[in-house]
Simulated scan of single mutants.
Amino acid sequence: MDNSNVIIIGAGASGLMCAIEAGKRGRKVRVLDHANRAGKKILMSGGGRCNFTNYTVEAANYISHNPHFCKSALSRFTQWDFIDFVHRHRIPYHERLHGQLFCDDSAKDILNALLAECRQYGVVIELNCRIDKLQQTENGGFVLDTSLGERRSDSLVIASGGLSIPKMGATPFGYRVAEQFGIKVWPTRAGLVPLTWQDDDGRRLAPLSGIAVACRASCGERTFRENLLFTHRGLSGPAILQISSYWRPGETLSIDLLPEFDLVERLKAARSNGNNTKLQNLLAEYLPKRLLQALLDDNYLLAAAANCSDKQIDAVAARLHTWTVKPNGSEGYRTAEVTVGGVDCDSLSSKTMQCLQVPGLYFIGEVVDVTGWLGGYNFQWAWASGWCAGQYV
């Protein structure tokens, strides 16, 4: 038997942050993970360079059934606090589009810094640890039967992540623990994930694979202006990944392939100037010819701008400004960056991340029903929620 003040299940971003903060308080901390290495998802994130936070972080960047829940944690451990952590460890980094911050060299720099602080504060990390049974004792503590033996603690933190990228070891463990203790779990789905074609669209559009264009992608009232990438199986790229977290099966996307300007104005100006250029050549200044040929009929493409009627111009503009796509589905958890849904926020304290009905039990990170946009927001939620729990466990 091995007793700890705190056991944290999950050696990912939120779990390691929680362990560091609890260790700073002099708590005896043990982190358990079934993987053979800590922080695997950190290492693969951001193409191996870890998009560790964003210069601008607001509650509006997150999806949750309780959109206010994340505000407390995000305000108490901010992006600037994590940037200070990066500076302390002398990790070189750079900014990309939209305030996204990445390591200059490798995501290993972030993981190594986290592990160094764990060692500094006496955190014990046990890997290749399977948890067979978990229960609360009569005195309020917890006892775990594991493949490494029995482990006991006063507090238990579930930082086991969501269902995204199962090849990295993702499991529904955290949701099962919540259900075991009668805590509500919202249905989960893949988020930040490519969307797939319907059969008819696939036959027509799969040959466009590799084409990337700027766009404005909308689903319902939500819109993202980013790049779109055509793939053999469907649509990807930042705009699609972002909108995928809001999209539900059966819904239609509206995509503006020319978000920079009003095509009607440009085509009417070309007509007024007597421009005899064919539309396919005129439009090729803005979009790849293969894409134009897939979306527009030849009677439009071969028409000279000078001879186009208002009706033709409106039809072409509508097709390119409001191209509608009804995805067949998504690529699923296999390629999803995050899991939408999870442990009900109303069952947790927004200040401590502790379960309101199970004292001593905490949930942090991706397992909670808080899902960030693409761009470092999910890591910032992991750091913030882990930090908050670490102050109280």
Rank of each mutant, 00 (worst) to 15 (best):
L295D: 10
W186R: 13
S236H: 06
G12L: 07
W197Y: 15
T78M: 08
D297N: 11
V185I: 05
K28N: 14
L283R: 05
V143Q: 10
Q135N: 07
A159T: 03
D145F: 03
D109Q: 12
A384P: 12
I158W: 09
G169K: 07
L74N: 15
G182P: 05
R152W: 09
M17K: 00
L208A: 06
V325R: 08
E366H: 09
C215G: 05
L148E: 05
T223I: 05
G141V: 00
I313Q: 04
P194Y: 01
P327T: 02
F142I: 03
E265L: 13
P166T: 14
G191T: 11
G332H: 02
G15E: 02
F230W: 15
W186E: 15
V124C: 11
R222L: 08
L283C: 00
G332L: 04
I63Q: 09
H87E: 07
V86M: 12
N5A: 12
A384T: 10
C388L: 11
L43H: 09
R222I: 09
D344I: 01
V367C: 07
I20D: 05
L114S: 11
F230V: 11
L301A: 07
E95K: 04
R266G: 03
L115K: 05
P359T: 03
V57F: 00
K167D: 11
G342L: 08
R96P: 06
N112H: 07
D81Q: 05
A190F: 03
G210C: 04
G122H: 02
N281Q: 10
S45M: 05
